[in-house]
Design a protein around this nucleic acid. Structure first.
Lengths: 152, 152
DNA sequence: CGGGCATAATTGACACGTCAATCAGCTTGG
DNA sequence: CCAAGCTGATTGACGTGTCAATTATGCCCG
């Protein structure tokens, strides 16, 4: 009876824009809080991954896979973090092409300072804004979007 | 009875990360499609606003308000779009400080070419991925997040 | 063995976004 | 009227992200 609509309705469009804009607003609010401790979201992502890695070190490519970044993005970011003394780079013993990123003392210290406040911020900005049912629905919606994306 | 939890649970954290990462994935998928026509998301946003404005022109500050951007972001973006011939800048007659952004013929043409495919992409990437109930829930969740953010 | 291909990582060029500083023109209170 | 301050817009510096090219090494097959 009803054929597949070609274009979104006004309401669907509104929700789409809400989705995009709210995501940006939430990320930017979180970035602002992290910034108070001098970290960007990317910094936190890297520090978290390294702090959880055995020996607090990871091959560049493993780190990239862990955080889901492209190599070159990681390379640029590590360069900036190294300049600030948050990480070090070392050569890889088992593969001369390889590089390892090592959590530096300054990086560990700031991560430990920032981690609990950051988790609290996630609760304040995100978890507390939603009912348990909405939170669950969010999980399902994100899963549906990702699965749909993957089917292309 | 139950005091406010200090930190998110594992599950809440998972949903938080899903929310952030899915948002990034969806935006990036959309950006890739627009890119096939040589436009960034920002370009589309500006072209849409201008194409709907009376005379296809807007004062810079009004354009900034319409799309919700900071002035300086808009200024940089308009500079790039002007270089590509998508818009022109003209002086404002009523306020010598002012500048107007005017949709250039090339900008109008590409916008008209891109608009319908873009709307179709929104349906394919976003609307089609969700059930009607999920779509409605998304609207409510985004509203809740924004309202919560505004309360700070 | 060694030429050719794959892989690890970096680099450079460029688009994008934010922040702080700047500049010009409007506006207003004494 | 005019100095002080406000507003519109741009700019420069810098962090960030992507893409394509590059460099160096490992690996495999003939």
């Amino acid at each position: 009876m009803t054929t597949t609509r070609r274009f979104p309705t006004r309401e669907e469009l509104r929700i789409w824009r809400d989705f995009i804009e709210t995501g940006e607003a939430v990320r930017s609010a979180m970035a602002a809080r992290l910034q108070r401790d001098g970290l960007s979201s990317g910094d936190y992502t890297v520090l978290l991954a390294l702090s959880e890695a055995p020996g607090r070190r990871l091959r560049s490519s493993e780190l990239a896979a862990t955080v889901g970044w492209e190599r070159s993005r990681l390379s640029h970011h590590l360069g900036r973090m190294e300049k600030r003394g948050l990480i070090r780079r070392e050569e890889c013993l088992t593969d001369n092409r390889g590089a390892e990123a090592v959590l530096a003392p300054a990086g560990l210290e700031i991560f430990q300072q920032v981690n609990r406040p950051h988790l609290r911020d996630i609760r304040e900005i995100f978890v507390d804004a939603l009912t348990p049912a909405q939170l669950e629905a969010t999980g399902e919606i994100m899963a549906a979007l990702r699965e749909h994306l993957a089917r292309e």
